[in-house]
């Protein structure tokens, strides 16, 4: 992981702190809607392509409402693409059965399912990314906790996030000082590596100890208490209910196909 990716996290963190209609929604509403979205998208049969397209409305709407730069989300999707791409690429190679034709071209099932995989990939990834960009990790954590995630888990997740930059920064500083002193800095001999990362580990543990001290000094006794303020508003109900209804409709009827038939004036 390069440092560039860390800057990206910082960007995501800033987006998560915006104050827009999308951000003001309760985290639980967005989590539930996103889960429903992903489950519905993934429940389509393997060769489905056109019926998936109406689902783009959801991430697009959130991106627009949440004032998230679309290019940013797009870049992150492209960065994450290789795994799905590699595994999906086997489909056209292995499945030659022709199952559709457009004019003079015939399309094999492999290409269709590949297209379907990539569409789903973009849909699911963009839904997850927009969820976090419109919610931020802290609101998300609070939401998860109220959805019965164990508090210990949520709290250490938030601690992880809180100290991510602090520790990564320490690691980067150590790497820099090492680079200044070595000829081939890109990778280290195992022994040097062990002591460098070991040092970083010891420092991290010392940091954890100091954090604990600061917590103890303010009365921490192992129980993590929280102030709950946000509550589920009617807008949250409307958001979840409205989108779920839309997903259900788009799952039952192929909206794209219907539209195409009206416009192309054809179809069976």
């Amino acid at each position: 992981m390069g440092l560039g990716q860390w800057l990206e996290i910082g960007r995501m963190d800033e987006l998560g702190r915006l104050d827009t209609p999308a951000h003001r929604l309760d985290a639980r509403a967005k989590v539930i809607t996103t889960i429903v979205f992903i489950v519905v998208v993934m429940s389509f049969p393997r060769y489905e392509v056109s019926a998936l397209t109406p689902f783009f409305l959801y991430p697009f709407a959130l991106i627009a409402l949440g004032r998230i730069p679309p290019g940013y989300i797009l870049r992150k999707i492209l960065l994450a693409a290789p795994f799905a791409l590699v595994v999906g690429m086997f489909n056209p190679l292995l499945d030659h059965q022709v199952i559709a034709s457009v004019g003079v071209w015939s399309i094999s099932g492999g290409w269709l399912s590949f297209a379907s995989i990539m569409l789903r990939f973009v849909l699911t990834v963009s839904a997850a990314l927009t969820l976090i960009a419109c919610t931020g990790i802290y609101r998300l954590g609070a939401g998860l906790e109220r959805m019965c995630m164990p508090r210990v888990f949520v709290v250490q997740l938030l601690f992880l996030y809180r100290y991510l930059f602090v520790i990564v920064d320490e690691g980067a500083r150590m790497m820099r000082s090492l680079e200044l002193r070595s000829a081939r800095p890109s990778s280290l001999r195992l022994r040097v590596y062990g002591s460098l990362v070991g040092h970083l580990l010891l420092r991290s543990m010392a940091r954890a100890d100091r954090v604990y001290r600061a917590m103890a000094a303010r009365g921490f006794d192992g129980k993590i208490r929280a102030l709950h303020r946000a509550s589920f508003q009617w807008t949250d109900w409307a958001f979840t209910g409205g989108w779920t209804a839309f997903f259900a409709i788009a799952r039952m009827w192929n909206l794209a196909d219907a539209l195409g038939r009206i416009l192309a004036g054809g179809g069976s």
Partner: peptide
């Protein structure tokens, strides 16, 4: 709990 969080951050570093 703080140890867990900080070590998680360490893994990223």
């Amino acid at each position: 709990v703080p140890m867990m969080g900080v070590l998680g951050a360490f893994i990223f570093a």
